[in-house]
Design a binder for these strands. Structure first.
Length: 355
DNA sequence: AAATCGGGGTC
DNA sequence: GACCCAGATTT
């Protein structure tokens, strides 16, 4: 169903006026209108499935170390992951790094069209639209969780935001609504509104610039739109980890390039079944080329991720042969003071704190 | 279409 | 504990 032109114009006007009257001051929003495309991109990636308050300190550290796309492209992946450590969804960092190199080589910087952006690693429909509209003033939609919720309510589109048919309908409305002028401000206004006013629970409708034009409000259905999504319970996962100490610190192994905590450093771990963690952990050490003997359990930690109920158990272990010599490989030693500068997942940091 | 991939904020 | 967050990629 198309949005009538008059309604479209009224929604745009009300939203941009609200945005101009006092949007949030955020580290990636430059003082003047034209934002730095690299900073816009970095912010969008960090903000994927991540709240503004969580991402902001990471953003500051990241741009301090890598102020430009060229600086990022020149860095080793290892350092990029270290700066991402604790933020989660680490594939984002690897894709960001790969995309920086690719964009520099092929376009001399970030390309300016949705299609070209979309072809880079880590650019999905949302991020391509957000960067194109905010950094390059391309009238493209950028539908994130906030925008989807706002539009579902404004147009009274029932159902869960994860439903494919709902997503298609919301995307179509968003495309039709983005104005040719100030598309980036318009998209950010929708996001700000969703984050600060049209919140998932207990939205502040009396403060909403769109309240008079909101179909869900008119129908008294704001609380039921969108419908909550049901997630399956996280599957249990037991990881046994070897705590190996040497003269140069604690032994770390790089996680495999795919899967959980991919590419990060952690004590050598093995996914094990309840009951035989030691044998499985010994086999994992042998597979790494460092056979060892597994001793007593030293610490354990439970942690729930979105789709995993993680249990980590740390076992004291002694190598039968000397461990790795230098860096550059899949194994390394880390002195206690070094851990903070390395890319470890939060679960591993918390486990080590308990030793 | 469903699963995978973190961590934290919020009620 | 449930639900969500400026989602993308793989299967």
């Amino acid at each position: 169903m198309p949005v009538p032109a008059a309604r479209r114009a009224a929604l745009r006007r009300a939203l941009l006026a609200w945005y101009d009257a006092g949007h949030r001051a955020l580290p990636w929003r430059g003082p003047q209108h034209g934002a730095d495309p690299y900073r816009v991109w970095l912010a969008e990636v960090m903000l994927q499935q991540t709240q503004v308050a969580t991402a902001a300190p990471y953003f500051r550290r990241f741009v301090a170390r890598f102020p430009t796309l060229a600086a990022l492209a020149a860095a080793p992946e290892e350092e990029v992951l270290a700066l991402w450590s604790g933020l989660g969804y680490y594939a984002r960092a690897r894709h960001l790094h790969a995309a920086a190199r690719e964009a520099l080589a092929r376009h001399g910087g970030l390309p300016r069209t949705v299609a070209e952006l979309r072809a880079l690693p880590g650019f999905g429909p949302y991020t391509a639209g957000a960067v194109a509209s905010i950094a390059f003033a391309v009238p493209a939609a950028a539908v994130d969780g906030n925008v989807a919720r706002v539009l579902q309510r404004v147009f009274a589109l029932p159902g869960s935001a994860s439903d494919a048919a709902v997503r298609r309908e919301v995307a179509a409305r968003a495309e039709a609504l983005v104005p040719p002028a100030r598309p980036g401000d318009f998209n950010q206004a929708l996001m700000d509104l969703g984050a600060t006013v049209c919140t998932p629970a207990g939205p502040a409708c009396p403060r909403c610039p769109l309240a008079a034009r909101c179909a869900a409000r008119a129908a008294g259905r704001v609380a039921g739109i969108p419908a909550p999504r049901r997630r399956p319970a996280p599957a249990p996962l037991l990881l046994a980890c070897a705590v190996v100490r040497g003269p140069r610190g604690l032994l770390l192994a790089r996680r495999p390039a795919r899967g959980l905590f991919a590419g990060l450093w952690a004590p050598p771990c093995a996914e094990v079944r309840e009951g035989e963690p030691r044998a499985a952990l010994a086999a994992a050490l042998a597979a790494l080329g460092i056979p060892g003997d597994i001793g007593e359990e030293r610490a354990s930690l439970r942690r729930t991720l979105t789709h995993r109920a993680l249990t980590l158990r740390a076992y004291h272990a002694v190598l039968r042969r000397p461990g790795p010599r230098g860096g550059g490989g899949e194994l390394r030693w880390a002195a206690p003071g070094e851990l903070a500068t390395l890319g470890l997942p939060t679960a591993a940091r918390l486990l080590l704190e308990r030793l």
